[in-house]
Design a protein around this nucleic acid. Structure first.
Lengths: 152, 152
DNA sequence: GGTGTTGGTTGCATTTCTAAACCGACTCGT
DNA sequence: ACGAGTCGGTTTAGAAATGCAACCAACACC
């Protein structure tokens, strides 16, 4: 897109999943909704768009098609490792919605499967062993760039 | 939208920022790009769309207009507290892009301003004191809902 | 008075999205 | 064997969103 897009991982990510429907599809896949018709009726998305978005996700290796029955051959869509790895992003978006729009409290709580305790969703500094708020994060060029530094 | 949208914080969030341009605008605001013309040329977005997206963000209280000079009165756009709070989401998206698309290493590194160490961007369990991967997160109804449970 | 900068608005062509009909492969009931 | 139903799509036509370029207003500077 713009001149500064090439070296930005946010833009790279949005090229793949930066679409309202795509993100909602991924949310449903995380929730265990995996079949075409289930996704369609759950989301209320037009069928051609659902086809298009799923194919795009297949192309990018974010989901894969897995047969759940033969004769007639029917497949469901599952997150690949790469796709599952988006959970942190969806969780962050959810955290923001919880915080700013869920007046009655979070509709859903996320918990660690092993211990049952709620999960923390803030960036944190392992060195200082504390959560790091928006105002205390800086950026600097990483191994893959020469760009200047700024605040995040 | 679909039938299951009402009580989902992800959908609520996407209603506000679930748009490719909106997320890129927010990224730029985090990076310190604040003026209309800077945003326009940096992103390569059409001016009418930029106007529209900024107004939408203003309406939702995610950004605010702050004069940076009088005569002629000119304003820049700044993140509110609510907007700044989206940093965790953008950071997660960036982390995913870094991981799956930055072959040469992350273009940008995020560090804690106080100590200069890189920030951890994974959800974690404060109880077990460890990072929690995608496969080890479960969901259950929170204080604001009656919905059934599933995996995330 | 003419030129430049900033922050827009307007109008029109192009792209994308929605809704609804249609289709192929198959199963099941009778 | 026939008709109805399910699943996973494709096609089509109209509505909405987007992109692009031109225009505009307020001012500064010279």
């Amino acid at each position: 897109m713009g001149p500064n897009e090439e070296r930005c991982s946010i833009a790279a990510t949005l090229d793949v999943v930066g679409d309202r429907w795509t993100l909602l599809i991924l949310r449903d896949l995380f929730r265990g909704v995996r079949r075409f018709s289930e996704l369609q009726s759950d989301l209320g998305i037009a069928r051609n768009l659902l086809t298009d978005r799923l194919n795009r996700l297949l192309d990018h290796g974010v989901v894969e098609k897995v047969p759940y029955q033969q004769r007639p051959l029917r497949c469901e869509y599952r997150l690949t490792r790469k796709g599952a790895d988006l959970s942190a992003s969806l969780i962050s978006l959810m955290a923001w919605g919880d915080r700013w729009y869920a007046d009655a409290g979070a509709p859903v709580e996320l918990i660690h499967d092993r211990c049952g305790n709620p999960i923390e969703r803030q960036p944190r500094c392992p060195h200082c062993d504390e959560a790091v708020g928006p105002g205390h994060i800086r950026s600097r060029p990483g191994p893959g760039s020469l760009a200047p530094t700024g605040d995040v």
